[in-house]
Amino acid sequence: MAETVFLTNDPLTRKRWAKDLFAILLPATEINDLVGTDTKSIIQQRKELAKGEGDTITFGIRLPLQGEGVVGRDPIEGKEEALRFRHFKCTIEELNHAVETGGRMEEQRVPYDLMKEGRDALQEWWADKLSDIAFAHLCGDSSFRVAGKTLGQDPVDPDTEHWLKVNDVATEGAMTSADILDLSFLDRMKQRAEMPVGDKCYKVRPLVINGKKYYRVILHTYVFDALRQNTNVGQWGDLQRAAGKLQIPNVEIEYNGMLISKSERIRQVVKDSTDPRAGVFRNILLGCQAGVLAWGGAGESKSTTLSFVPYQTDAKRFMNIRGGGILGFKKTRFEGHDFGVITGSSWGAPLS
């Protein structure tokens, strides 16, 4: 019986590897536990594979109910409150990266599969890049670009109603090593999420886990480590145990309804003049639909989101692999105001 063999550049092999690339991508990112497909997700994801580069994908952002309700035996009919949605558009753009796996001599010299190594390297690159893109938008780092260019849309700085600074320093450039985040500042961030200020601002809608409301808070690693050192050891242990009971990935502590984790990807917006590792970081408190992640159809068929294409160069002497996707990320905003993010700027530095 003849055996069917799929060569590396066979269309079915490319399709399978493209599906594998997307299946592995999100679980490998730092935002995996934030992403979902419904309105209760912190990052709402949609895939519209019929759309391509330069198109927009529209999300329906559900606004909070505002009605008073009905008391006692008063009739409810005719007093129903209509669900309110605001349409929010995200532009998608093509992003590619490629690796060179070498030529025939390299294949003979090394004891491992260079094509597989190239595929794995692209998966790791995509996971890192997507994490960077998401944090740049959520933190509002308007200087962020991909290869010096705009990917879909540029990140936008926080608006003043959703932006707090430790010690109420006027600007991030004026912050110093005295402006350290503590638990009381986290209380302020949560209060701002629950009690918005300014016109046309909405409450940040919390997550509901086991019937209790929570916000996700992500601090830069330096900021988190300083908070740990400045918190009573016994109290810190209580916060860790509270988080452990919830068994949510990446959450280090739970404090006052905030699930707190750390990440080196939190954006640094000011660098210290003597130690560039130290400076000002934009920590974030997140609620439902804080951001959106949109995918178009970059694959070779309607069922694949990413493309995975081996190709040869130099008279077929060298084999390369391209991994591409069409995507966009955007922080949710209406009329110039952030919808699901409270930004808290503070000083951070390596532990001495």
Results as ranks from 00 to 15, higher is better:
210 N>S: 14
201 C>R: 13
39 T>W: 04
160 T>G: 08
336 G>P: 08
123 Q>K: 14
110 V>K: 09
205 R>T: 10
110 V>N: 10
44 Q>R: 13
26 L>D: 06
140 G>H: 01
247 Q>P: 04
245 K>V: 14
12 L>N: 12
260 I>D: 08
168 D>H: 02
54 G>R: 07
9 N>T: 11
155 P>L: 05
182 D>H: 02
315 A>R: 09
270 V>Q: 13
6 F>W: 14
281 F>N: 08
327 L>A: 04
44 Q>M: 13
191 Q>V: 10
62 R>V: 13
130 L>Q: 04
331 K>R: 15
176 T>D: 02
345 S>A: 15
98 A>M: 10
212 K>E: 14
92 I>Y: 02
273 S>P: 02
136 A>C: 09
31 I>Q: 01
256 N>S: 13
3 E>F: 11
81 E>Y: 13
14 R>C: 07
310 P>L: 03
122 L>W: 07
313 T>F: 01
246 L>D: 09
176 T>A: 01
290 A>H: 00
36 G>L: 01
120 D>F: 11
137 H>C: 08
325 G>Q: 11
287 G>I: 00
320 N>Y: 09
125 W>M: 14
34 L>Q: 01
192 R>G: 03
181 L>Y: 02
90 C>W: 00
292 V>S: 06
189 M>C: 09
8 T>L: 12
309 V>S: 11
177 S>Q: 12
212 K>L: 12
18 A>C: 09
304 T>G: 00
69 G>P: 03
119 R>F: 15
113 D>E: 12
132 D>C: 05
286 L>E: 00
140 G>A: 05
227 L>S: 08
300 E>N: 13
137 H>P: 04
